[in-house]
Design a protein around this nucleic acid. Structure first.
Lengths: 183, 183
DNA sequence: CAATGCATGTAATAGGTTACATGATTTC
DNA sequence: GAAATCATGTAACCTATTACATGCATTG
C-alpha cells in the first residue's frame, strides 16, 4: 500500500464522488481544487494508468459515437487508499508569492516603482477575490465541507488585498512607512 | 537578455545585497524567503554557474584555510537583470494546501475524523505563527521593505489559524455546521 | 578527539507545465 | 461549414528535493 502521489490524491478523491474520464477530471479540478491543488493532462493521463495498474481504479471503454473514451471508477482498494490518505496527518502546505519576494528586495526600487508593485499586487488580489465571489454566486448557497473551501479562497484573497492596501497606505504616509531607495 | 529562472531570482536578489557563497545563499534563504520562495543546494550551485556563464555574476576563489570557497558577486549586467525583473509585472502566486484538499473531500470522513483534521490544521497554523513571532523578536524592530514580509507571514498564519478555529466552532455547533458523513 | 559547522558539488528521483498531434461531435 | 468542445495522449522541458560523497576548520 504505497503512498498516493500528489496528483493521485485529487484524482482518487474525485473518482470517489463518481466515475470520470481524464478530461472530466481536468475540467473539475480546474473549477474546484485548482487554486490550492492543480492537475495537468501531462500528469492526469499517466496517473490514471498507474492507478489502474495498482488496482485503485478500473477503466471502462465507453466511446461516444466514434470518440474514444475511458471512464474510470474507483475500486474498494482505491476507497481504502483515500480513507488512509484522508485520515493521515502529514499535510503539505506551501505558498509561492513573487510579489512578496519582490517586496523583500524592495530596497532596490525607487518610491514610484515600489508603489506600483504594491498597487498592482492589491489589484490582483481584489480581482481574484471578485472572481471567487462570482463562482460563489453561480453555485448558490451550499452546505457541505466542499463549500467551505470556496469561503476560504474568498477570505484569503480578501485578506491579501487588505494587507497590500494597508501597505499602500503606509508607503504613502511619510517617515513611518517603508524606506525605499529614494522617496 | 533571457528571463531569470525562479532560483536565479532569489540568488541575484541576494547577491545584489552583497557577495555570497552558495552555502551562505542557502542559509540566508532558509532564514528569510523560504516561506514564500525556497531554494535547495541542487538548484543553487548549478544556477550560480549558469549566472556566471551568463555574465550576471562573477566568482572569486577565496579559500579559508584549506577549504575551497567560491564567493559570487553581482555584475552590472546582473544588477540590470534584477531591476528588469523587479519592475516587471508578471508575478507568480500559488498556494498548495493539502488540508484544504482534504476538507474538500471531507464528506468521506465521519464527524470525529473531520473534527480531528480541522483541529490539527488550526494547531499547525498556530505553531507556525508562534515560530514567526519568535523570529520577529530575535530581529527586533526593523523599518524596511524586507521586514514587511515577516509581518505578512505572521498575519497570514494568524488568519489561517483563525479560519480553521472558526470552522472548528461551526462543526461543533449542530445543524448550521458542515455536514460530514455521520455524526 | 568527537561533533558541529562551513563548503561544494552531483545523481537519482519526483513532480510538474506546455505545446503539440490527432480526431470526432456538437453548436452556431 | 466553421468554431468550439469533448477526448486522449506524449515529448520536451523545467523545476525542484533528497540523499549522498567529500573534506577542512572550529569548538567543546
Amino acid at each position: 500500500m504505497s503512498r498516493l502521489s500528489p496528483t493521485a490524491r485529487v484524482i482518487l478523491g474525485l473518482l470517489r464522488l463518481g466515475p470520470h474520464t481524464g478530461y472530466e477530471i481536468k475540467q473539475t479540478t480546474d473549477r474546484s481544487t485548482r487554486f490550492f491543488w492543480g492537475a495537468s493532462y501531462g500528469q492526469i493521463y499517466p496517473e490514471l494508468r498507474r492507478l489502474e495498474e495498482a488496482g485503485l481504479a478500473v477503466a471502462a471503454e465507453q466511446p461516444r459515437g466514434g470518440v474514444r473514451r475511458r471512464v474510470y471508477r474507483i475500486t474498494p482498494a482505491g476507497e481504502q487508499a483515500v480513507q488512509e490518505w484522508l485520515t493521515g496527518d502529514d499535510d503539505e502546505f506551501g505558498v509561492r508569492d513573487e510579489g512578496l519576494l519582490k517586496l523583500f528586495f524592495g530596497a532596490a526600487l525607487d518610491g514610484e516603482e515600489l508603489a506600483e508593485l504594491v498597487r498592482r499586487r492589491r489589484a490582483f488580489f481584489e480581482e481574484v477575490a471578485a472572481h471567487f465571489r462570482g463562482i460563489g454566486e453561480e453555485l448558490g448557497p451550499l452546505d457541505n465541507p466542499s463549500a467551505e473551501v470556496l469561503t476560504y479562497g474568498i477570505g484569503l484573497m480578501d485578506w491579501n488585498a487588505a494587507w497590500w492596501a494597508a501597505l499602500e497606505e503606509r508607503i504613502g504616509t511619510g517617515p513611518d512607512g517603508v524606506s525605499p531607495r529614494s522617496g
